[in-house]
Design a protein around this nucleic acid. Structure first.
Length: 594
RNA sequence: GCGCCCGUAGCUCAGUCGGAUAGAGCAUCGGAUUCCUAAUCCGGGGGCCACAGGUUCGAAUCCUGUCGGGCGCACCA
């Protein structure tokens, strides 16, 4: 069952009461009362009733569509039903006013005391403010990055890495048990090429003049240290031996070195996986065979002729008989081979087994892939659907998030990259140039399925067009204000929160959205919503701050009024707390000063 | 040819399960600094939500088609 935050479900009611959930509960209680009075028919479905902030803040703090949704079932018109609901809501001391608007919306304005209480709630929960129990008991496996272990990370991998990592943190914060996983493709032809490239560098390290790197081998300098390490360890023992003698060994060593490189690159971004799953190990353990046997048993794999790709048949097309997975049964365009004609596993065959393995230890799976793999989504979804079907009806929710390409620009001009010449832009270069926080935040300021430009000239601009500085600046200002307050001998204190008025409470209203933004973002699996929330919160903070420019009485630190200063500093501290909590989900540092 | 993603202000993008007068930043024009950081704020102008149908109390949002951009389409990974 998918969980919809702030719908009036039993689930939402049982959650810890955030301010919004508490008021959703009040509305539900009113509807229950009306049902008892006979105004609403017994057992009416309230599933479509929402309680949420209206888009236009001038309408109030919360709005519900209850009257519009339920009018038909109550055999009345929306406005008449709304009047009955408003009548009940008006009796609640926490609701200052409730009114009917438009086609039957009910707008509520909450009492100031409710918002003041929320400031205390933030303080009480601290770094747990916004944490949700929504995913309690749910084990989610999220696989991201999974770059081939044939070289350092380049910018093409970056977006998926950041999105995956932020999503993992988000789901964890929303109560899920999260496993961060990296699938190491150390069994295909590419790692053989890597091993040969390493062998060449090994001969070079032994003093041989290897000349230009031949076509088909990896030319990058990053393999030189690998060759040197191999030379240091083995001397010339493997120099003149036939390939078959050294290939497995060199492959293993080179892959290990590449993974060390990749882990170091990921660490630069603050990314750490829990599990590195090796395709080679998976195969040694016989997992693909087991998957194949199971699938054959259920008539989901058969030996058949591989069809030509849809719409275009290559000149040299020859039909071959291969073990095929019936992915068409689950919506794919054609059945897909799990073994090659030499009997070895296709990428898909091994990947299928890998997903089976992941599904054993998780209630839900998420893959983050680059958009260039879009063509293979259907088959892997088909595979997981098949496993679900066979797993005794336990369906395994499975999302493949496609992350679109990032175009690198410098001052509006595309950055030229050539893999063959080895001139791709590495992730490490970019992080070194613009910093981790800029890379991470920028990658999260667009929904992942939209294409994106990354312009070096723009993202390092500390002033304009750059949300990360904007948000960090808000936090830095808060920190500096608290420092200044301390220097003047005033500590933040909640004793006189009743002296905070509408302008301060507007800030609280913004911050109080955080718990529901977390749940909505987690449910939609869209970490970018956190970034946009932080931007809005920072904007509200900066706006409030600038009131003090015109009117010194509106500054956080008010001369000769320690009571008010303490209350405002307390507010500032809690806004800072919410910003920190949000930035933590994005993996961006909340700086104390800039 | 087929599949997937995208199309919202001059530019880059948000837009909650279908909800009220579609929002922000940049750019542009006009303002604010003896002040806790102006790396900020306030205001003006700027929209056939690609186009055409459909679904309904209501559509940027859902459905169908068209156009435009991107990605992919063999036993590669």
């Amino acid at each position: 069952m998918r969980f919809a935050p702030f719908r009036l479900t039993a689930r939402a009611m049982s959650d810890r009461k955030t301010l919004h959930a508490a008021f959703a509960a009040k509305v539900d209680a009113v509807l229950a009362a009306l049902e008892a009075e006979g105004v609403l028919p017994a057992g009416v479905s309230r599933a479509n009733v929402t309680v949420e902030p209206p888009r236009d803040a001038s309408h109030g703090d919360l709005a519900t569509n209850a009257a519009m949704v339920l009018a038909k079932q109550a055999a009345t018109n929306p406005r008449a039903l709304a009047e009955r609901i408003v009548e009940h809501l008006g009796r609640d001391a926490q609701i200052e006013s409730a009114g009917i608007a438009g086609p039957g919306f009910i707008n509520m304005r909450l009492a100031d005391s409710a918002w003041r209480r929320e400031i205390g709630a933030i303080a009480g929960l601290g770094s747990d403010y916004g944490r949700s129990a929504m995913g309690a008991g749910q084990r989610v496996n999220i696989e991201y990055v999974s770059a081939n272990p044939t070289g350092p990370m380049h910018m093409g991998h970056c977006r998926g890495a950041v999105v995956g990592d932020a999503l993992a943190a988000l789901l964890e914060f929303a109560g899920h048990e999260v496993v961060r996983e990296y699938y190491v493709n150390d069994a295909g032809g590419q790692v053989d090429v890597l091993a040969r490239s390493a062998h060449l560098r090994y001969r070079e390290a032994l003093g041989e003049d290897i000349g230009a790197i031949p076509e088909g081998l990896y030319p990058g300098d990053y393999l030189k240290p690998v060759g040197e390490a191999l030379a240091a360890e083995f001397g010339d023992a493997h120099r003149d031996r036939p390939e078959g003698d050294w290939l497995p060994l060199f492959r293993e060593r080179a892959v290990a070195e590449m993974m060390a490189l990749i882990r170091a690159d990921l660490a630069l971004l603050g990314i750490h996986h829990d599990v590195f799953a090796s395709e080679a190990e998976l195969q040694r353990a016989g997992k693909p065979e087991a998957a194949e046997a199971w699938l054959r048993e259920h008539d989901l794999v058969y030996d058949g002729l591989l069809e030509a790709p849809k719409g275009k048949t290559p000149e040299d097309w020859e039909p071959v008989e291969l073990p095929l997975f019936r992915s068409t049964r689950f919506g794919d365009d054609q059945d897909r081979p799990i073994r090659k004609s030499d009997g070895s596993w296709t990428y898909f065959g091994a990947d299928l087994a890998y997903h089976m393995q992941k599904a054993e230890g998780a209630d839900a799976l998420i893959d983050i892939w680059g958009a260039d793999h879009a063509g293979t989504v259907k088959r892997i979804k088909a595979a997981v659907a098949a496993l679900s079907e066979g797993a005794g009806g336990r369906t395994i929710p499975f999302d493949v998030k496609l992350v679109q390409m990032v175009q690198l620009l410098r001052g509006g001009e595309p950055v030229k990259m050539s893999k063959r010449a080895g001139t791709f832009v590495t992730l490490a270069d970019v992080v070194r140039e613009v910093g981790k926080d800029v890379v991470r935040f920028t990658m999260l300021t667009r929904k992942p399925e939209a294409q994106m430009d990354f312009d070096f000239a723009k993202v390092v601009e500390a002033s304009k067009d750059n949300p990360v500085f904007y948000v960090q600046y808000a936090h830095a200002r808060i920190s500096s204000t608290l420092r200044k307050g301390a220097a003047e001998g005033v500590a933040p204190a909640p004793d006189a929160l009743d002296r905070l008025g509408g302008e301060e409470l507007a800030l609280v209203k913004q911050a109080a959205q955080f718990p529901r933004v977390v749940e909505a973002a987690a449910q939609a699996r869209e970490p970018h919503r956190i970034a946009f929330f932080l931007y809005d919160l920072a904007a509200a903070f900066h706006a409030y701050w600038n009131l003090g420019n015109d009117d010194p009485a509106k500054r956080f630190i008010v001369a000769h009024d320690n009571e008010l200063t303490a209350a405002r500093l307390f507010l500032a501290a809690q806004i800072g707390q919410v910003i920190r909590n949000g930035l933590a989900l994005l993996g961006v540092e909340a700086v104390e000063e800039m």
